[in-house]
Amino acid sequence: MTSPTAIDRREALRQAALVLGGVLSAPLAAGVLAGCEARGTPDAAWRPRALTPDQAELVATIAEQILPATDTPGARAVGVHRFIDALLAESYRAGERERFVAGLTDLGRAFQASTPDQQRALLERLDREAAPFFRTLKDLTLVGYYTSEIGATRELHHVPVPGRYDGCVPLGQVGRTWAV
């Protein structure tokens, strides 16, 4: 919460709140925040901190296999690999981080020696068997994707301020899984 971006965002929110007499409306809040988020690092300038660039690329490749681009963008486009790298760098303890990197290295060896079809078959087998490292990677990919703005608002459905609760509506009225 101490990065310049966060402070800018808070300041922007505060000013917006003043304009509206204290309580920020949801659509405006979303606009202000999206504007701030767009100031993030462009892909070419991004450097991983916990992973090597090759490892980060491998994470992006596998994550895209788990959640690919369809009629909405996939895991690579929303930066799942960046999220995973940040989590490894900032949240994980050293031992956990090393275990993750070791698991990734193992998977990478098998993965990179394979054709695309073999890669696909390998991941499907690991998924069926719930192999521990793959399970971790799948979990982090899902978190990174479905909590991203695209994942939450375009792939799924998100309303920051619902305003009411209806306990029983036709699924079609919401249309998709709630992001939160």
Binding site: A29, S91, Y92, P160
Partner: peptide, 27 residues
């Protein structure tokens, strides 16, 4: 009240660790 609810308006993608937090710090 209000002003110091600093995370109130943050959406999932605006939380630095997407709600997964900082495990090493928590421990």
């Amino acid at each position: 009240h209000g002003k110091d609810y600093v995370t109130e308006w943050l959406q999932p993608w605006q939380l630095p660790h997407r709600g997964r937090g900082e495990q090493a710090l928590y421990e």
